[in-house]
């Protein structure tokens, strides 16, 4: 880990002022579970870390009217234990529980979960976010892509590792972002982007911006997350599905289905949603929705199995609500 400056501001405003204009200038430190590893591996070497854990008020979960507001530095463990979340958003509780290490849950924050970098082993070995070889050629399609995207986008073959993002997207959550020019809000769905080069990031977030909170409308949708993981030990999911259904009896008024770990950003399965919208939630519909969810998948040489896993995840997530 290269040497760096460190600051621990008490307000969001101070924190924003402490951040520099380029990614190499500074980084926001929350749980540190990913950032410190990236720095040890020399994948990022920011000259300054700005710790946001001492900023008051960012570590709370609040129900304000019909909106649940989750502070950026709320830990995964806090999220997992929160009764408001468990009652309204079991899909979030389930996703947090999927991070099976208590240590990671105690350290890792919800904003950190959204902003963590992909685990692609080419990226982590220094080949860049797009995993390109010495001549700029993409390494993933001809390489070992067993954990990579079945819905690659552009030149991006990694999968986004966030545990919470698929559930948050299904729940129509929004991130609150502070930057030099004030505050803005962004649907979690729009937080992710496809980098055009190895110098770009995979988030629609500037180097001087900080996620301060996540807000979720508490509008009574039934929701669930199902993760396919090989180990009970802390392990990355192979595919996940988060679903949120507005039901009228057994009839689906509207559905949101989001796949995780299948592409460089959490993937809205609009095909599956279309199958469910207006239909009765039964076994046949669930099967059809699961099939539709993976339609158009373009698996790579070694990850065809993930198409089935994603399908199973959708099926099981929906079945848990039926």
């Amino acid at each position: 880990m290269n040497a760096f400056e460190y600051a621990s501001p008490q307000t969001v405003q101070e924190a924003v002022e402490l951040l520099g204009p380029g990614w190499q200038d500074s980084a926001v430190l929350a749980g540190g579970t990913d950032l410190l590893s990236l720095m040890k591996d020399g994948i990022v070497s920011p000259r300054r870390l700005v710790n946001i854990k001492r900023i008051r008020g960012l570590d709370r979960i609040e129900l304000i009217g019909d909106v649940v507001r989750i502070g950026a530095t709320v830990t995964l463990e806090q999220l997992l234990r929160d009764a408001t979340i468990a009652a309204r958003f079991p899909s979030l509780t389930q996703a947090a529980a999927g991070v099976t290490s208590p240590q990671i849950r105690n350290m890792g924050t919800v904003a950190g979960d959204l902003c963590q970098r992909p685990r692609c082993w080419y990226f982590r070995a220094g080949f860049g976010i797009l995993a390109t070889g010495p001549d700029g050629e993409p390494l993933v399609p001809a390489g070992d892509n067993r954990y990579h995207a079945i819905f690659p986008e552009g030149q991006a073959y990694y999968v986004h590792p966030s545990s919470l993002a698929p559930a948050l997207i299904a729940l129509e959550a929004t991130v609150e972002i502070h930057g030099p020019q004030g505050t803005r809000e962004l649907p979690v769905e729009e937080l992710y982007r496809i980098p055009g080069s190895n110098n770009e990031r995979e988030l629609n977030l500037g180097p001087r911006e900080i996620i301060t909170a996540i807000t979720i409308p508490a509008n009574g949708v039934k929701n669930a997350t199902y993760e396919v993981r090989q180990r009970q030990l802390l392990d990355w999911p192979l595919a996940t599905a988060s679903v949120a259904l507005r039901l009228s009896g057994r009839k689906v008024v509207s559905a949101r289905v989001v796949l995780g770990h299948v592409g460089p950003r959490p993937r809205r399965a609009t095909g599956a949603e279309a199958v469910l919208n207006g239909a009765e939630l039964n076994e046949q519909r669930i099967e059809a929705a699961a099939r539709a969810a993976v339609q158009g998948a373009r698996p790579l040489s070694r990850n065809g199995y993930k198409v089935q896993l994603a399908q199973v995840a959708v099926k099981r997530a929906l079945a848990s609500l039926a």
């Binding site: 082993w121 001809a142 390489g143 070992d144 090989q230 030990l233 802390l234 392990d235 990355w236």
Partner: peptide, 29 residues
């Protein structure tokens, strides 16, 4: 069930020289 050294066919590098992807079982496995 879990362990193997994974090598990149293109670069020849070991892709999992870490305990995250060089997988060992946990107490529940």
């Amino acid at each position: 069930l879990y362990e193997e050294c994974v090598h990149d066919p293109i670069t020849g590098r070991r892709l999992n020289p870490n305990m995250e992807f060089y997988k060992l079982p946990g107490i529940g496995d």
